[in-house]
């Protein structure tokens, strides 16, 4: 496993981050990756701790997000995976990249489409995780309406093109795909200048 910040300039070229932002992001990565085991890698427990502060609950979405960050499927995140994934969440990232990431997030079985059963599973699971209770009739009604809007080909599933059309009509569905914090990462983690490898 690669350790440490090996090539900030390469990562800056291949993401929306500047070299300084990559170095500042590495300060955040060090903090998160040393929370449980100080091994320069983020495991799922550390990811969950960083998100929720207290290790409180099972979360379908933490698992899905972690799996999407974990492009090498090793069960742990190196800095490169962390930086490349967070790049999609930058305010300057391409909307198409955000749409692609969000589609994969909801395509639980990774079949290339989001099926009705998956949507119902996500609604039921996330409502249960947050302690909310809606009757099955209400949930079915909401899912019917969602598919009326999204499933323009009427085949009972939402493909990538339909997902794109849906989110362009409902931009709120991409709200969580942009993190304003990433714009201010160098001021949030000014200590990166002490470890900088480059003259910016």
């Amino acid at each position: 496993q690669p350790r440490g910040l090996e090539d900030p300039e390469l990562l800056a070229r291949e993401t929306v981050f500047s070299v300084s932002e990559i170095e500042a992001l590495y300060e955040l990565f060090k903090r998160i990756s040393s929370a449980v085991i100080d091994d320069g890698l983020i495991n799922k427990e550390e990811f969950q701790l960083a998100l929720f502060k207290i290790n409180k609950k099972e979360s379908l979405f933490v698992d899905r997000v972690f799996d999407l960050f974990d492009t090498k499927h090793s069960g742990i995140l190196g800095f490169e995976e962390f930086a490349r994934a967070l790049s999609v969440f930058h305010p300057n990232a391409l909307v198409d990249d955000k749409i692609e990431f969000s589609f994969q997030l909801y395509d639980l079985k990774q079949q290339g489409f989001i099926e009705r059963q998956e949507v119902k599973q996500m609604v039921v699971t996330t409502l249960a995780e947050s302690g909310m209770n809606l009757s099955d009739d209400v949930i079915e009604n909401i899912i019917n309406k969602t598919f009326e809007q999204a499933d323009t080909k009427h085949d009972g599933k939402i493909d990538k093109e339909e997902w794109k059309n849906l989110v362009l009509r409902h931009p709120s569905l991409l709200k969580n795909m942009t993190l304003q914090y990433l714009k201010d990462i160098t001021t949030t983690f000014p200590s990166f200048v002490f470890h900088s490898q480059v003259d910016d």
Partner: peptide, 24 residues
């Protein structure tokens, strides 16, 4: 009601990565 199933999912799942940037 204009509520979309995906709005419910993203709201109730707490899918919000801003926690990563907040100190304990």
């Amino acid at each position: 009601c204009n509520l979309n199933a995906f709005d419910i999912i993203s709201y109730s799942s707490g899918f919000d990565l801003s926690g990563l940037f907040e100190e304990e």
